Simulated assay, not measured.
Amino acid sequence: MGEFSAPILRVNKLNKQFGAGCSHCSGKHRQLDKNYCPVCATVYSCQDISFDLYPGEVLGIVGESGSGKSTLMRCLYFDQEVTEGEAYLTPYKDGSSNLFQESSQQKRFIRNHLMGKVYQNPVMGLRMDFSSIGNIAEKMIAAGSRNVAAMELRGSELLERVHIPVYRMKEAPKNFSGGMQQRVQIAKAMSNNPPILLLDEVTTGLDLSVQANVLDLIKHLQRELNISILLVSHDLGVIRMLADRTMVMLDGQVVEQGLTDQILEDPQHAYTQQLVHSML
């Protein structure tokens, strides 16, 4: 990662709320119970989230469940609409256009060409009844591929790279173990060579040895292809292994961000201190 390179993704004041809000929870003197309004029951999942992601960098996002990490990822991948905020992607219109204000057609283009996402639950990211290679082809077709032979070649190449044996490529992911399903998702997410990969709790629920395998694979691919990765996890071990920088979220807000080593060695915020101590 060049110190002086421009960010590939800039996110500025991203907000996502569920509910209309009321006089009690909006405005300067908002009074929330964590990220929840006790009066009108509006939930403020993401509050003024701003960060930069650099080319070839892994940015970790850590926090307890309910802190807004996954909502942030869903907004960035257009699985959900933001309430307000801006995001700029350098490979898209030279980073001059707020992604959140683009048409749904343009958002689809961005999703299919410039981003890949691996979901915590493979059911969200894969068609369980399609063959594994069919899952990859689906993402390529969405990005405009029409050449069947080329798609088969690319699909088998990718599945091989994520260690799915050749003889199982035509098999459906529903027959696979959790670790294998995650590897198929990774292959699918990478099918169109996106510059950015969004990984949402990709090792949760996997056995430790399988987790280590999946993390190794991600690390290897990231280095080889120089992809930028946003990595959400509640597990500091995963963050320590993969993330160059880390952002700590609590109740929909970023409470601390910095180099991963720095945050783990010398956490500033009380919540981060608690997280780091619980890991020791």
Score class of each variant (00 low, 15 high):
Q47A: 09
V248A: 12
Y88F: 15
L242Q: 05
L53A: 07
T272Q: 11
E86G: 10
S131Q: 04
P91Q: 01
L76D: 01
M124E: 15
G27W: 01
M279D: 10
S23A: 07
H277P: 02
G125A: 03
N15W: 15
M247K: 00
Q273G: 06
G155K: 03
R161W: 10
H220Y: 11
R127Y: 14
R111L: 05
N226W: 10
S65N: 09
S97T: 15
L9A: 07
A6F: 11
Q101R: 14
S132V: 08
A142W: 02
T272Y: 13
G116E: 06
H29I: 09
P194I: 05
V254Q: 13
E256T: 10
N98F: 02
V162D: 01
N192D: 07
P195K: 13
F176G: 00
Y44W: 15
L242E: 11
P122E: 06
V232G: 10
R154T: 09
K34H: 14
Y167C: 12
H277C: 04
S209K: 09
C40I: 08
P122D: 08
M151G: 03
E152R: 15
L242R: 03
T272D: 06
L231D: 11
S5M: 14
G179L: 09
V255Q: 06
M180H: 03
L208W: 02
P267T: 07
G125V: 03
K28A: 13
E102L: 12
I263D: 01
S45K: 05
K139C: 12
L32K: 08
G60Y: 01
P165I: 02
Q101F: 07
F130C: 14
G60P: 00
G134H: 10
N35P: 15
R161N: 12
S228C: 03
M249C: 11
R30I: 04
L217V: 06
